[in-house]
Design a protein around this nucleic acid. Structure first.
Lengths: 83, 83
DNA sequence: GCCAACTATGATCTTCGGATCATTTTAGCA
DNA sequence: TGCTAAAATGATCCGAAGATCATAGTTGGC
């Protein structure tokens, strides 16, 4: 599972993966982020185009941040060595 | 200017910076992304919490992508060596 | 200082996400 | 196989974003 997102679907997948790695349920994460389990589900399944603020709430709750980088500046695997 | 975003304000700043580096006006970028100059302005100035889809439209138009990484895993400057 | 280009912003309408209640479906495990 | 915890989803309301028209304000070049 990569940590790169170019679409909302990518983003949902990455967020779900990160949540599972931290052993959180959708309800846990929702509580932490101050939103609803319903919304977490919607975002993870790309059921709707979320708002950016909601995404940042989730990222903060997962202790993640966004790096905005040029596309294909490195192959996805290259980052593995760093993190 | 960093390329890290934890808030919509960060994101707006990064997007504006990226647009200027590519010598695009808000209208140019809007046309490329299939949205409105009004919306680009709103996002760059964090005048409103954008939708994620709109952000991805902008990122694609700027040939950028998102990397979701753990916070503080590296100091901001560290990425300079890579890109 | 002027003009042209660029950016910010006013107003209205429609669409859609999140909040909020809930129930159904799915999946893991004894 | 059943139970239980987790995830998905139905419905409604409200608020807010983007589309779309417009103009006002700002900035840089000459």
């Amino acid at each position: 599972m990569d940590r790169i997102a170019r679409t909302t679907k990518d983003l949902g997948n990455v967020l779900r993966e990160a949540r599972k790695i931290q052993n959180l349920t959708q309800a846990d994460l929702a509580a932490r982020a101050g939103i609803w389990q319903r919304t977490v589900s919607n975002i993870e399944t790309s059921a709707s185009g979320a708002k950016v603020d909601t995404i940042f709430d989730l990222l903060a709750a997962l202790d993640l941040e966004l790096h905005i980088v040029p596309r294909s500046k490195m192959t996805p695997g290259d980052l593995e060595d760093i993190f």
